[in-house]
Design a protein around this nucleic acid. Sequence first.
DNA 1: GTAAAGCCTCACGCTACGTGAGGATCAAGG
DNA 2: CCTTGATCCTCACGTAGCGTGAGGCTTTAC
Lengths: 244, 244
Amino acid sequence: MKAPPWKVGELAKRTGMSVRALHHYDEIGLLQPALRTPTGHRLYDASDIQRLQQIQSLRLMGISLDEVKRLLDGAAVSPRQVIDMHLARVHEQITAHARLAERLTALALHLDAAAIGSVDDLCLIIEAMTTMEKYFTHDQLAVLRERQTSVGDTRIQAVQDEWAELIPAMQRAMDGAVDPASPDVVALARRWKALVDEFTGGDSGIGKAVMTMYEHEGAALKEKLGNVPTPAMFAYVGRAMKHL
Amino acid sequence: MKAPPWKVGELAKRTGMSVRALHHYDEIGLLQPALRTPTGHRLYDASDIQRLQQIQSLRLMGISLDEVKRLLDGAAVSPRQVIDMHLARVHEQITAHARLAERLTALALHLDAAAIGSVDDLCLIIEAMTTMEKYFTHDQLAVLRERQTSVGDTRIQAVQDEWAELIPAMQRAMDGAVDPASPDVVALARRWKALVDEFTGGDSGIGKAVMTMYEHEGAALKEKLGNVPTPAMFAYVGRAMKHL
DNA sequence: GTAAAGCCTCACGCTACGTGAGGATCAAGG
DNA sequence: CCTTGATCCTCACGTAGCGTGAGGCTTTAC
């Protein structure tokens, strides 16, 4: 156990820092050794060592070198404030990362469900997720995910096929100006409602969100899904449903 | 709604990116516009725009530009792997930040309790916390924090004063080679046990951790706390306790 | 005395751009 | 045709906290 002052390598070994880091601290004026040998070698004395321990303590709490310097040099900033502000920043980071993790987990689920290999498909799914997050609340998305896994792939495919048949049929009725109260249209509306209820799990908020989404994103969705309901069609179906 | 190809400013406005970011993507070969005007102005065509959308999607998931490039260019890496590995990284970050937040919160508590203003004291507390985390488990630390708040400052001070009296007394008994079974020493041991029990809340693991800590950190603690028990003293007290 | 180890000072590299600097080009009006 | 303001171009530095050499002195140990 040699006594101080120590050379940079010795100090590094004893504190677990790298020599480069100590050089860096010297460069930025965070820890400048009290002495130098005539040949320019750094010599750290006891007070330098203590300061380094303080630096290490503060760094362990994730405080930036800049703030460490401000804390140790000028007492102008209160430690308490620094800690509080830093804690707030850390909490922000945590929530941001937590959201990201949630999205990534959901994405992984979709990847499993859809047996996707291509990057193009991956991006489409991300895009769809992003769009949906704009219209559905967090809870609603959780409900939809739960339903997705519970009903199973085959049923989902069947539902998609039925929509692919139902929407054009409804469109033809509208184009032909058929009375929404007519038995044929009401029958279509009944199937429509059944599909919607199955999708939403009876949550009317989800149904509304879907309509809002189609309203705002109609053009974009049409390109990707083929046939999609228009706002006019929602109104038409709504009238037909009054006669269920 | 002008049709593509678009100039960089136009693309930036429509996608919400900055012109500089698009320049950057060009520089690193992530998104190089299909065309340039004879004077060098970038012209992005439809496929460029689609690629940019994919880039934005992947970036929204927190994927680095480098990995985005690898994903979009060479299909050599599977999307699924990338997502999984990225998710793992994010989870690591979350746990690291969560630990940090926990430490900061505990630190804020100590600051409140000790009415600390100086940076020196702040660092001492951090150092103490760091040391204790090496010897106590997470649960044990939670117990100690809980006990700290429940017993109150005045009692803590009283306990410290009693230790300050008890330890030298025990040391004198040891120095005088007094039989640990003697009534005086047993009486001291009784007080000792009461203090320990109050501190540990009856958790024997905590008591052992304290002993291990004093054993390893004896010298460092002695400087800061004044008189501290030595391993020999623990043994002596242990023998005395057999006669309680 | 010599070789190995340790020290010094540059200086580039990493992430994903922000922010000018200095100059060419484009679109619209006089 | 000329001007003017908006837009475009290409450098190039700055960010946080060092890692990792390069090239050249000093110290230490045999």
